[in-house]
Write a protein that binds this DNA or RNA. Structure first.
Length: 298
DNA sequence: CTAGGGGTAAAT
DNA sequence: ATTTACCCCTAG
């Protein structure tokens, strides 16, 4: 009954992750039809994708057996406390699977995910839109629910909440969201021209702050992106990985320093810096964890 | 079509 | 014995 078994190859997993990053988790059919992934995933069904993603997500959460997914509606009250939950992604499922050669691309400058996947970077904007759309709450969704939705499906930086607040404010100012009594709703389609002035403002500010971070938008790293990067690190020698992590930390610190100078003008840059730091911390933790556990990959 | 719950059986 | 891949079913 259960089919003979056909283990997922690293390529397939990568394609799935990339697909999720590009189209969002749950758009299995869309991912499958995307010519960019169908070449790798043509053997899999949309249900396979869903199941595999389920397995992977479960593992990423560290909690061994999965069936106990009874922890869904409790986040609303857990935010005034603190957020440390972000850092247990070290249990990347990728220990032995991605063991193949996979040329180690020297982590050039930023840890910005392979440049080939550039356009598939998830933007917080899109996540917010996705959250509101999926929540389908009449009258719109409040910040708490949006945050809960996003945190359930993606890995979010430690103080993702601040980031989200800034972004919601920005999107409201742009007119892309409509705020009514603390609830956000997606604004009816908006002509392009209206957005330009804002983008210009921000990119100007950003360039003043740090040429290195001259991307288009606040970037939020998804769980899978982190996985991919950490997996890459697991294939490095400890020295290489440590160096990479150190670079990431240095980058984060530099970015934060710069962002602080200009924080009043550009919240966006600060958000970038925070994301960078979050990743750096995660990376360091992974390295340490691995060294402690004598789980050497080579 | 998707989210999940649940099951079977192959691999480990 | 646990994990993992695949399948099936149901609700929405």
């Amino acid at each position: 009954m259960g089919a003979p078994k056909q283990k997922w190859t690293p390529e397939e997993e990568a394609a799935l992750k990339a697909g999720v990053i590009k189209h969002g988790a749950g758009k299995w059919r869309t991912i499958l039809k995307d010519p960019e992934f169908s070449s790798v995933l043509y053997l899999r069904s949309n249900v396979d994708l869903k199941d595999k993603w389920r397995n992977m997500s479960v593992m990423a959460n560290g909690w061994g057996s999965r069936d106990k997914t009874r922890l869904a509606v409790k986040r609303t009250s857990s935010f005034p406390k603190q957020e440390e939950s972000a850092m247990e992604l070290a249990a990347a499922p990728s220990d032995e699977e991605i063991m193949d050669v996979m040329p180690i691309t020297a982590p050039n400058t930023t840890f910005q995910i392979p440049s080939s996947t550039k356009r598939s970077i998830v933007r917080l904007d899109n996540l917010i839109m996705e959250a509101i759309k999926s929540l389908k709450e009449p009258g719109g969704s409040n910040k708490t629910n949006i945050a809960a939705y996003i945190e359930e499906q993606y890995w979010a930086p430690p103080d993702f909440k601040r980031l989200l607040s800034a972004k919601l404010k920005y999107l409201t100012a742009c007119g892309r969201l409509i705020k009514v009594k603390r609830r956000y709703r997606i604004a009816p389609a908006l002509p392009f021209s209206d957005r330009r002035s804002h983008s210009m403002l921000f990119s100007e500010a950003r360039q003043r702050v740090s040429p290195r971070f001259d991307r288009d938008d606040v970037k939020i790293l998804t769980k899978s992106q982190i996985d991919l990067e950490l997996a890459r690190m697991l294939n490095m020698t400890p020295e290489e990985a440590a160096a990479a992590a150190a670079r990431a930390v240095a980058e984060a610190e530099a970015a934060i320093a710069e962002a602080e100078e200009a924080a009043r003008e550009a919240e966006v840059a600060e958000a970038d810096a925070e994301a960078a730091q979050a990743f750096a911390e995660a990376a360091m933790k992974t390295i340490k964890g691995r060294n402690n556990q004598k789980v050497m990959v080579r």
